[in-house]
């Protein structure tokens, strides 16, 4: 496994190719090591076919500009998550929790089951919700939500 600064990423359609030192170019996936708790760095460049890491990146900043922009784009696609901007309505019915929210990607209406398992608090203010189908939503800051949204969210958490 190599470390920093001697890797180059190129893109062929939706395929990311990594050239690492003298080794032959390989098709890779870029994977955050901690996608839930920290998506700012610690990225594994992962050989998609042989299912093994070929490179470890502390941050995309350590890549050359072209590779960096490919990495940012690829990570953006793989780790796109809906950011909740407001919670219009929430209610509990027969033990099931329902939320109607507006996210940066549009409106969603979803069912949240077992908040103990499917809500991950990242500190006191930030949380990630996984709905009953496995879709993830992020509340970047409870504090930054309006009072109604906070109250609606608190009702079901």
């Amino acid at each position: 496994m190599s470390t920093q600064r001697n890797i180059k990423l190129t893109r062929k359609g939706d395929v990311i190719i990594a050239e690492c030192g003298e080794s032959a170019p390989v098709e890779v996936k870029l994977i955050y090591a901690r996608p839930v708790s920290d998506r700012s760095g610690q990225i594994s460049v992962f050989d998609a076919k042989n299912k093994q890491e070929i490179y470890w990146l502390e941050s995309v900043e350590n890549l050359d500009p072209e590779s960096r922009s490919i990495a940012i784009e690829a990570l953006g696609e793989r780790y796109a998550i809906s950011l909740i901007q407001s919670v219009e309505h929430s209610f509990v019915n027969h033990g099931q929790r329902y939320l109607k929210v507006t996210t940066d990607r549009g409106k969603r209406y979803f069912n949240l089951k077992e908040p103990g398992k499917n809500v991950t608090w990242l500190g006191d203010d930030k949380l990630i919700i996984r709905d009953s189908m496995g879709n993830r939503y992020e509340v970047s800051s409870m504090e930054a939500l309006d009072a109604t949204s906070r109250a609606n969210l608190n009702l079901v958490l």
């Binding site: 359609g13 939706d14 793989r78 780790y79 796109a80 879709n135």
Partner: peptide
């Protein structure tokens, strides 16, 4: 399967992958 969703990817005979 992606973190926030999923996609169908087609690989062509030229080795190009397209979502």
């Amino acid at each position: 399967e992606l973190f926030g969703g999923a996609r169908i990817v087609v690989e062509t005979i030229n080795g190009i992958k397209v979502a």
